[in-house]
Amino acid sequence: MNCEEAIKLMDGYLDGELDPIMNQAIEHHLRECHNCDQAYKTQRSLIGAIGNATPYFKAPAELRERIRSSLREETTEQPVRNGVPGAHVVFHKRQPEPRSILSEIPWNWLGLAAAIIFAAIIAFNVVPRSQRPGPDQFLATQLIASHVRSLMANHLTDVASSDQHTVKPWLDAKLDFAPAVVDLSEKGFPLVGGRLDYLDNRPVAALIYQRHKHFINLFVWPAGSDAAGATRAMTRQGYQLFHWVDPDFNYWAVSDINAKELQEFKQLFEEQIPHH
């Protein structure tokens, strides 16, 4: 150990807070180095003297009494929890709040804090979802993959039928939920069929609609308790995604038709599903 290290560790050594190995090393150095040993001894007596001479401010007796009475106030003030209704009315009377330092924090600071949080919430919601990575991003990727796969592998439908009364029972039998199935042929979105898929770690229903030469995959699964929010549209890899929820279900429509048509599809679909 050199002098520099020894000086650095001096306070820890004085306070007996070094580990045994360091302790030995510094002791060894102090035996060898007169200067450091001198510095150590001066420092030790100085700290000892300062410690002894520093005034210790004992609490005045009246502070003890003040605290004890404020604690008593605090206990009588506490409402009876889970008590027999009305009992506390008889036996407890409210006391004024004890003087509190916290209550003196200027409200404008709280206001500022609230404003910052508010701004953060606004910013969070205004920034387009598509620009932020997150669970949505991941889900969108899954949705598109699923859509593309369905068109690719000649596996668009498990049950090919334009009859909603064929598609719905088939899906109901395969799933633990019963999505609404409507035919929108008259509106220019004929039902092609239904398919089982697996998304977001759960089996989902895929309803396939057609728009001219294009297909729309409408993925449906029960709305989670998180109620992950609002209607939104996004574009990914040239595909349009449109998301909405109703009290029962999550909907994700994926297609290569344009955003306006997809939104129209969503509106027609919503108008047609039986409302309870």
């Binding site: 401010f57 502070l63 003040r66 605290i67 404020s70 604690l71 605090e74 004890p98 509190s100 330092i101």
Partner: peptide, 15 residues
């Protein structure tokens, strides 16, 4: 200030 703080601290500690 010291006394006020100590009183407040005891109340907080008690809670």
């Amino acid at each position: 200030d010291a006394q006020d703080v100590v009183q407040e601290a005891y109340l907080r500690a008690f809670r």
